[in-house]
Amino acid sequence: MHRVTGVFHIKNLYCDGYSILDMCMAPGGFLAIALSCNPEAQALAFSLPRIDGGHRVLLPKRPSVTLKFLDVTMLAEDMGLSCIPNEHPDAGNFLPSQFDPRQSFDLIICDGQVLRNHGRADYRVRTEASRLCLTQLTIALNHLTPGGTMIVLLHKVEALATVQLLHTFDKFASIQLFKHTRFHAKRSSFYMLATNIRADSEDAKTAIERWKFQWKIATFGTDKDYCGASQLDMSDVEVILKEFGPRLISLGRRIWEI
């Protein structure tokens, strides 16, 4: 990925020192490459504890990396929610904020996937993939240095939710897609590489608020509530295709070929 795109090289010149955030780090290959490309950078990384089904961390310990073992989908306060209903199945498991409001990062990696061995409450089974994606995107964009870069693992370029996400990022960032010709050849997975992100733009702020709302519904609402919050009207679909259809084809052609 880096040989083809150079995406791991931090280009932000408007701050003192570089910083990296890895939302779902283990085993640590992506963060290892990011640090090798930016040896002076400091990094904050989250990883699901192995006792909860997480991967083993293979990245050697180093003073420039702060590693926290936790489930990022439970970062309720960082998702804008501080009051949890006592009757909720996970009432005692939600986590306090892990970020200073002014904390920002130049490069953020969002490549977490739902793990088969991760034990979780029944209500989470249907919406877990969405909750994980929404948490990563929200926290990342909310703490990204303007002009920074995000690397995001996605699936199925042509899926409606993916199209909407690409359309959203295309409004405030320069995006390209990458898919490895061997390791991802038979899977639907690919990476969105978003650079020069205008994280302080109104479009970015609107996206953050929408993702927070969808996460809240996926976490505390009913299945019916979640479907209503996540599905688009056909009129919305038509607008997206009219505005973004040709760009989508241009972005996706190489991914579909692979």
Rank of each mutant, 00 (worst) to 15 (best):
M1P: 04
H2P: 04
G6S: 09
H9P: 14
I10N: 01
C15T: 15
Y18G: 13
I20K: 01
M25P: 03
G29A: 12
F30T: 02
L31W: 02
A34W: 00
L35N: 00
C37Q: 10
N38C: 11
P39G: 10
Q42R: 13
A45Y: 02
S47G: 07
S47Q: 08
I51T: 07
G53W: 04
G54M: 04
H55F: 11
V57E: 07
V65P: 02
M74S: 14
A76W: 01
D78E: 09
M79V: 00
L81H: 05
H88E: 03
D90S: 10
N93P: 06
P101C: 07
R102I: 10
Q103V: 09
Q103S: 10
S104P: 08
F105P: 02
L107N: 00
I108A: 02
C110A: 11
D111G: 09
G112N: 06
Q113H: 12
L115W: 06
G119Q: 11
Y123I: 05
V125W: 08
V125Y: 14
V125T: 09
E128N: 08
E128Q: 13
S130A: 12
Q136S: 07
L137C: 06
I139M: 07
T145K: 09
P146S: 15
T149V: 08
V157F: 07
V163K: 10
Q164W: 10
L165W: 07
L165A: 14
F172Y: 06
A173Y: 00
A173Q: 02
S174A: 12
S174K: 15
Q176Y: 13
K179F: 15
H180W: 08
R182I: 09
R182S: 15
F190W: 03
F190Q: 02
L193E: 02
L193N: 02
N196L: 10
S201D: 07
D203E: 13
A204K: 03
K212N: 03
Q214F: 00
K224I: 11
Y226P: 03
G228W: 03
G228F: 04
S230H: 06
M234S: 12
S235E: 14
S235M: 14
V237R: 10
F244D: 05
P246W: 07
L251I: 09
L251P: 01
R253Q: 11
I255H: 06
W256S: 15
